[in-house]
């Protein structure tokens, strides 16, 4: 499968997790990893799975590196029909009220423009006892399996 791994980060934790997922997947798949700040909405590709790792920051806001992308998406309003994405959040249950809002905001935005979400959106809790990758690796492999059925072509 051809995977575009994107991350939205504020402190670098989502970037680190994206790099870990890339190492995990790149033996079996073709993976490119990029900061959302370096990705433009017109680069979405119907033949690829877009795997997004996104934190929340402050009061449930998008992390800094995802903000220009979200703005560009709102402004350009592209038709993302046929685009598949999976999304994984990083959050902190100390801030229960806004837990996972960053990844949620991004998912809603993509869906609103016609993209299809593959699998469930899971958010890792930084105040919990699990390591992010222990939650994210099984998620990633499940997303890939689901996407292989949907995208219907294995690279």
């Amino acid at each position: 499968m051809n995977i575009m791994l994107l991350y939205g980060t504020e402190t670098g934790n989502a970037e680190m997790l994206a790099e870990d997922i890339m190492s995990e997947l790149e033996g079996d798949h073709e993976v490119e990893c990029r900061n959302l700040s370096d990705f433009s909405p017109d680069e979405f590709d119907a033949g690829r799975l877009h795997m997004i790792i996104c934190s929340s920051y402050g009061d449930g806001e998008l992390p800094a590196s995802a903000q220009p992308f979200a703005e560009a998406l709102k402004t350009a309003a592209p038709d993302l029909k046929g685009i598949h994405f999976g999304i994984f959040g990083l959050g902190d249950r100390e801030y229960e009220e806004t837990f996972g809002f960053g990844s949620g905001t991004l998912a809603e935005l993509l869906i609103a423009h016609g993209a299809v979400q593959v699998g469930e959106r899971i958010t890792h809790d930084a105040s919990g006892s699990d390591m992010a990758e222990d939650v994210a690796f099984p998620w990633a492999s499940q997303i890939v399996t689901l996407a292989e059925e949907k995208i219907g072509e294995v690279a």
Binding site: T11, G12, N13, D92, E94, A126
Partner: peptide
């Protein structure tokens, strides 16, 4: 001491 989530950046620094 009660903001352990914020201290999660230590995992990056360990690397």
């Amino acid at each position: 001491a009660d903001h352990q989530g914020t201290k999660g950046v230590i995992r990056q620094f360990e690397r």
